[in-house]
Structures are given as C-alpha cells and as structure tokens.
Design a protein around this nucleic acid. Structure first.
Lengths: 336, 336
DNA sequence: CTGAAAGCGCTTACAG
DNA sequence: CTGAAAGCGCTTACAG
C-alpha cells in the first residue's frame, strides 16, 4: 500500500504539503492541491487511519455495548445508533455482553485501550468494580435503556415506562374494564417495576385497588405469560382485561385464551408493551405500547456526538414517550 | 492516561524493558517483570492499542458487513461471528449496508483505511467497481451467505439451498402429496432460485412435473405469501401442499388459509424455510427448513482466522446443511 | 505557500 | 538480561 511518503516522493514535495492538501488546509496552492489529489488517485493512496488516530488522539470510533444484538429490541436501537454515527464518519464497534459482568468489563477495558471516542452502553451490572471503571473513564458515555445510578453523572436515554403503563391501564379503564390483571417481569427489572407502579397507581386513582391475586410477576417469556394468565384466572375469574408488561407475556396470555377457547377480545382484553414484530401477526394483533427503539438509538448517538464536540457541558438525560398502538386485542368490557 | 514512558520513568528502566515485560517476552528477569506488572497496576496503565497496531500492522479488528443487523437472520449470524472472534481478542466492527451499493463501497474503503485484519461480508451488489475494490484488497475476506462470483477467489460459507429444497419437497411427497405448489422469492435472488430448482427437480424426479400455475414467485413478505397462496389456489384447487421459499411467505399462506377457514394441516400442508422465531408460535407451528445461522457466522469467523494465520493457503468454501424442523403445519395428504 | 523537524505511543532489531 | 535508537505513518507548530 502506498503511503504519504510515496505521494510526496512521486511529486517531489514534502509530506507536510501532501498532508495539508489532503486535509483541505487553507494555505496550499490550488495547483499543488490538484497535483496531490491526482497522485493520490494514481497511486491509489488511502491515508492510514491508525496513524492519524494516534497523532490526533481521535479515532472516530464509538463503542456500543448491548446485551444481545440478536434481540430485536437491541438491534433496532443499534440500527439507530449506527445510522446517525456512520453519517458523520464514525464507526461503531459493538459488543454483546450476554448479560455477563466480565464481558461488560472486558468491553470497557477494550474501549480504553483502543482509544474509542465515546461509548453508548446498556449495562446490566453495577458492582463497584464496574462503577469504578466508568468513573475513571476519560471518555464520554451515554446510557441507553438504563438510568444513571447514584454517584455517576453520565446522561441516559430511556423510555418513561411509568407514564406508558399509566396510559395502557387508562386505555383499558376507558374501555369500561374494572377488573384488570397485571402480568409482570421479575422484580429485579427496573423497567418492569416502573410498569407495575404505573399499573398500581392508575388502578388506585380510579378506586380500583387491585387485589393481590390480580398481579403475577416473575418472567419475560411467552411460556411464563401463559402460566401467569392461568394463575390470574384462577385467582380472579372476574378479570376482563390484562396488562402484560411486555409483548411476549401478552402473547402468552393470548395463547392461554386460545387454548381455553376464550375469545379475545370479546371475553378478554389484552394489552402488551414493546410492539414486537410478533404483535402484528394475523393471529395476534396485539394492542401494545410501542417503544421508539430506533429513535432511542439515534437520540443516544446525538447526545454522544454533542458530548464529544463540547467536552464541558453535559447534556440532560431524555425520557422518551411510548405510543399506544391499537390493534385488535382490546374491546369494551363485555356486558354480561 | 499513563503511558509506557511513565512506567519506565517510575521504575527507572527503559521503555523497551517495560514493553518486553508486558508482552511476556522470554528474556526478562522475573524480578523486573514483577516490578513492571506492579507499576502497571499502580499507575493503572493500559497500553495504547492504536500505537501497537500502527507498529505491528495488526489491529485485531474485523469488519462485518451485512445488509441489516435488525433482521434476525443477520443478527444471529453476527452473533456467531462476534462470539468466536471476541474470544480471540478481536473486535468486530459492523456496518449495515441497507442493500445500498454506496454504503458497501464505503465500508470497504473504511476497512482499508482503518487497517482491519480481515472482512466477513454479505454483499448485494457486484458491479465492476466493487469487484475491483475487493480484488485489490490486501486483506483476507470471506463471503457469508453469498457465493463467490467469477474472477474472485475468496472462500464463502453458505447453505446448500438446493439440497434443502429437495429435502422439503421430499418430505411433502413422503406424506403422500402429489399436488404441491411453490411460493417463491424474486427471480433475482440466488438462494431463491436454488430453492425453486430444488423444488422443480424433485417434483420431476417423482413424475410430478408441476404445471405452471403451481409456481408463484416474486416477493419475500407475509403479504406476498398471502396473495401468492390465493393465486395458487385459483390456478389449481387440487393443491394439498405448498413449499414456501421462506417462512414469511409460508406464514402468509397460513394467513390465507386462516382467513378462508381452510384447516391446516388437515386440508392444506405448508412447509417454510428459515425457521424464524415466528415459526414456533402457537398459532403458526410451521414446519420448516432451519438454516444454521449462528453456525454460519462462527464458521466464517474460523475461516477468516485461519486465513489470517496462514496467508498462503486459501481454505475451501463450505456449504452447510439446513435441518428439517417438524412442527404441525404438515400432514398426510387428505384422502377425499 | 512550503519544508524540516518533532512527536503520537508503542515494538524490535542491534549492541552490549 | 537491558538500553539506545530507529521506525510505524501520519500531523502540526515553527521557520522561512
């Protein structure tokens, strides 16, 4: 591969001149600029970005740390990140952590050694060591789909899960439902507990204080949703509607209804959360709260760009809104 | 950030010694090695991978070019790639091309400038310029889910679509079906035409030369599958089974049946191709040919690793086998 | 407008 | 076993 010296030699000028011509430096004559560009084409010269990065202390690469790129939720966010960053000449390096604490630390260590310009991360573990790593990091970081823990100061972008849950439950109540169950994620999930809180508060506000058997939580899968729906029904056969904290749980509820021969939405309304591709299938048509996944990614990317441009001022965190997507899994309360 | 000079100064040794100690060079005394490692920890020194890369001409980064990371097909493959590469200290840099020829070229140009150690790519365009770029590339490349075009010599890993189609159709025939339709992808798709060829050959072998109306091709979506099934049925109401060239098309066929009230698999058998997550849903339970997506990714990564280790000998291409996943969308031919 | 020189942070023959 | 020196391929004050 030709390097900058080859170009200089070829033209009988100095490497400084070649460098300046290539980087659009103002004080270099049109004539030499033209010659340089010609030589670059002729020798098929491509400046070595590694050398450039070493001297400029800027690598135009961003690390994106997520639990699992094959989870459609994260891949859409990753797409949003990649799109806005690549437009501006950045490369994104992604790392799957598989929710493994060591892989998370490994990724950060790598980012430091490789001199990334910034990081967008969705961490799952906040032990001391990890928090220490982040605190010492001399690199802009934005949290994606996570809130900033005590003691750290980086901005985040997340969805307002509490508000979204409120909206979902209000929709059901607006349809006339009074006995509304909740299928939840494990208690360890922050976004899960926000959704539960939104459900509880909204029910209470309407004087519909839910009885204990109306809440079953602890999983994230279709299978768990099916079992939870069964438990909900056993505990309170009066239930006419269910808010599932994610779409997989909601689909599990739908499965239960299908197996039991209970017509949805005529006898049972189900609302989900996520708007997975699944939700739009002919047999499912799940009404759900859509999180703006792609937008979250691009928002995080923009924030990071801003932090890179202005090292001093920290942008504020952002809480995006979920949207109610009405399909065909909810209906007015049956008047029996 | 501390650098290698700081460590050397701190210890009163030369940078060469620090470098050798850190890289496990044999002839450096145990004593100094210990001291260096201690100082590294004390000053929290992390070697600059950029500088290292510049001098060693090895960056431990691999480019992964795919059409769309949010397509579950590609994200599974990406996962396979990332897993095997990250274990060996490589970082993977991915780029979505969105099937845009300029983005493809842009990615290759970037890979050159950034001195990647190798590339795994799933290109969609093979114009002269792109082929030229690849031909001049001084970097190992393996093709993923694509076959190597004339004139180039890099290895590929793909699935044997022809064989898989053969297996799918034979399964249907083994179930007693004789009137078997085909829903296909656009004619421009290589893998699509391989699947069509497998269907045609197998039908012919069994003396079931399909009539023209038994083949409808031209799309990849659920909506197209639904319409295609309608056309197939109009053209030949005798059809008792259908081979869909991908799962989305198959699901479309299932939708058509559901809307028409035609029971599957009692009146109509449907077999798909891909084994998407969708296929396992309660309402779908689509029998299908599974492509070993993750394995394809890791296989490609292993090949690339081998090419990096041994610059001389080119590994052979690999054609992986798809597996028949039997669910509940196929049954013996109805004996009417 | 252009060039010589220093330097980014490392590694690696070459001497000793 | 250790150090001084050269060099990877660039950019950027500093002079002129």
């Amino acid at each position: 591969m030709a390097n900058i010296k080859d170009i200089a030699k070829h033209l009988g000028v100095s490497v400084s001149t070649v460098s300046r011509a290539m980087n659009g430096h103002p004080d270099v004559s049109e004539e030499t600029k033209k010659q340089v560009l010609e030589a670059v084409r002729a020798l098929n010269y491509r400046p070595n970005a590694i050398a450039k990065g070493l001297i400029q202390k800027k690598t135009f690469t961003i690390g994106l740390m997520i639990p699992d790129i094959s989870d459609p939720f994260f891949s859409s966010m990753a797409n949003g990140v990649e799109e806005t960053l690549s437009e501006r000449g950045y490369q994104v390096v992604y790392g799957n952590t598989n929710r493994n604490p060591n892989k998370e630390k490994q990724f950060i260590a790598n980012a430091i050694q490789r001199q990334f310009d910034g990081l967008i991360i969705t961490p799952d573990f906040w032990d001391e060591e990890f928090a220490g790593l982040l605190a010492e990091l001399e690199m802009p970081v934005v949290l994606l789909r996570r809130r900033t823990p005590q003691g750290l100061s980086m901005p985040y972008v997340d969805v307002d899960h509490y508000r979204a849950a409120t909206e979902a439950v209000n929709y059901l109540i607006g349809l006339g439902h009074r006995n509304i169950g909740f299928i939840g994620m494990p208690a360890t999930s922050f976004s899960g507990s926000e959704r539960l809180r939104g459900y509880m508060d909204t029910m209470r506000e309407h004087g519909l204080l839910p009885a204990e058997p109306d809440v079953v939580a602890g999983g994230r899968t279709i299978a768990f949703g099916r079992e939870a729906m069964e438990m909900l029904h056993e505990g309170n056969p009066q239930l006419t509607a269910v808010f599932a904290a994610n779409d997989l749980l909601g689909i599990g509820a739908l499965e239960w209804a299908a197996i039991r021969g209970i017509p949805v939405p005529d006898q049972l309304s189900v609302i989900g959360y996520d708007n997975l591709e699944y939700a739009d299938l002919h047999w499912i048509q799940l009404t759900t709260m859509a999180q703006p996944r792609r937008e979250m990614g691009s928002k995080a990317a923009h924030m990071l760009l801003q932090m890179i441009a202005d090292k001093e001022t920290l942008p504020g965190s952002e809480l995006l809104e979920a949207n109610l997507i009405i399909r065909r899994s909810c209906k007015e309360r049956p008047t029996t």
